[in-house]
Amino acid sequence: MQFEEDSFYVEKTKNGDLKAFGKLVQKHQGYAFTLAQRILNNHHESEEAVQDAFVKAFQAINSFEGKAKFTTWLYTIIYNEAIQRFRKRKNHSDIEDFREDCEFHSNQLDGFSLLNSNERKEILKEGLSKMKPAESAVLTLFYLNQFSIKEIEKITYQSNSQVKILLHRGRKNLYDILQRQTKNELSQLL
């Protein structure tokens, strides 16, 4: 399906066109669900979080001034909704812990490029589901949704250094998870 620019639908929605907001939902629901899923790691709860976030976005659409991209504004709402649900569910403090220092070498994933695209997606999806929500969400925003660090700062209310630490630590942790996962699968084959 071919979509117009977000600003086109935003203006129509502000003028009372409900179908225009429906187009925004269709356009962004996949990435919205992926972000919520990375935080909540629960399909049903992620669907509910995304639905509630879209309702909140619709109710607040007139407050969107266009100073940032619409997706930054929308993903902030989705992120906040998912984090709020996560905190209620687990009263978890790991989401605020950003002090670990680690090192990651991207060239260590060269063998990963040998797998076909669908296999890679499934392996990454499984690896991301085993990570801390903050790391998984930031990796998803940066790599899958291709948001800049500055945009991620706005969405997550984290400082530049905190986002970079989450990216750094997230890459390292994802690498470790994928390495363990691969070793387990190889040992089962032998």
Rank of each mutant, 00 (worst) to 15 (best):
M1W: 07
M1C: 09
F3W: 00
D6P: 00
D6I: 03
S7N: 10
S7L: 11
Y9C: 00
E11F: 04
T13R: 06
T13S: 12
K14E: 09
N15E: 10
N15V: 02
D17E: 09
K19C: 05
F21I: 06
G22Q: 09
G22K: 10
K23V: 05
K23S: 08
V25E: 01
V25C: 08
K27Q: 14
K27V: 06
Q29W: 07
Y31S: 10
A32V: 05
A32T: 02
L35E: 03
N42F: 04
E45L: 15
E47L: 14
E48Q: 15
V50W: 00
D52M: 09
D52H: 04
D52E: 14
F54N: 00
F54E: 04
F54D: 03
A57E: 06
F58V: 05
N62S: 15
E65F: 02
E65A: 14
G66V: 07
G66N: 03
K67N: 15
K67V: 12
K69C: 01
W73S: 00
Y75W: 00
N80T: 02
N80V: 00
N80H: 04
E81G: 04
A82I: 00
I83W: 04
R85T: 09
R85M: 12
R89Q: 15
R89M: 12
S93T: 14
S93W: 11
D94E: 14
D94S: 14
D94Q: 15
I95C: 10
E96Q: 11
E96A: 12
R99A: 13
E100F: 13
C102P: 04
E103C: 12
F104K: 06
H105A: 12
Q108M: 13
L109H: 00
F112I: 08
L114Q: 12
L114R: 14
N116G: 10
L124N: 03
K125C: 08
E126C: 05
S129V: 01
A134S: 11
A134H: 06
E135W: 03
A137P: 03
A137T: 01
V138C: 05
T140E: 08
T140V: 05
L141R: 04
F142T: 02
F142W: 04
L144G: 08
L144I: 09
N145Q: 15
F147H: 06
S148N: 10
K150D: 12
E153A: 03
K154N: 08
T156A: 03
Q158L: 15
Q158N: 13
S161V: 13
S161K: 13
K164V: 09
K164F: 06
I165E: 14
G170I: 05
N173T: 10
I177D: 02
L178G: 08
Q179S: 14
Q181H: 13
Q181D: 14
T182Q: 10
T182V: 07
N184Q: 12
L186W: 09
L186F: 11
L186K: 06
S187K: 14
S187Y: 13
